[in-house]
Amino acid sequence: MLRYTLTRTGSLLISLIVASLVIFFTLEVVPGDPASFMLGINAQPETIAALREELGLNQSPWARYLSWITDLVQGDLGTSYTYRSPVSEIVAERLVISLPLAAYALALTILIAFPVGIWAATRRGSFADISVMGGTQLGIAIPNFWFAMLMVLVFAINLRWFSAGGFPGWDEGFWVSIKALTLPAISLALPQASILARVMRSSLLDTLDEDYIRTARAKGLTKGQALRGHALRNALIPVLTIIGLQFSFLLAGAIIIENVFFLPGLGRLVFQAISQRDLIVVESVVMLLVFAVIMVNFLVDLAYSWVDPRLRGRR
């Protein structure tokens, strides 16, 4: 178990280093000079040159990469070119929305997908199973921004249960904030839950066909006991993979939903930073997302070994 964790940690570090190199040097080749963007089209060449000097853009790419990465390791993300404030502050402001939103959406995804998937799997071929398969197909096909707008119409405009958008800030109270994130979270969760429910169903169906389920039934376990005691945990392995992918996606992929609900989240920040050539913000946020994705995959790997003793290596 320890060795498994160590090798996983090693590959995690290597992934991070490679990712930072790719991110930094990709943005190097993107056209557009941050200094001229900040000063506008009418700026004097001398002013631009002075600003380039001040921002350190005249140094060699390697020197800037090294200073970026050493600062990054120390927690200093640098200063935004456009906002003129520390990137860490800007990102932190956005993260307090994006992170809870992703977690909320993922929790809903799991809460919907698990029961639905299990329910359908235990009734294979029945009307219930067929309706779940049809319903989840629809859930995947519907664009989530359209579904989001539909929910705004129904729950915000007609029923007035929720506000149509915006975020009051966590200072206004926990439940108020959670309420503001509810419609976005549901919109994000709908397609994800549909995917996960289908994965859960097919994984569980495969497991229920296994010989050891028959062994369990021959011991005298009821169908339900065999499902809970022997099938569920075995069926969890592919499901965990999908959950890991979904969390990473929800963290950064919420940009459209953030726009529909006027949420100042990470997705919008990246979008704005790219269009303004605020490279330092882009680099930091992308690096942060890469870090999150790699961390989530790392946790999923650890979860595998918790679920499956065969991965723990021989004693």
Binding site: T215, H230, R310
Partner: peptide, 28 residues
């Protein structure tokens, strides 16, 4: 009834299968 059958299986009747490689739950 099914509950009676569950009480019978494993208690009055035990069963051994052909494929030992897959007849056991790999996670327990």
């Amino acid at each position: 009834s099914e509950p009676d059958l569950c009480r019978m299986r494993g208690d009055a009747v035990g069963m051994v299968f052909q494929e030992p490689m897959t007849a056991l739950n790999p996670l327990q």
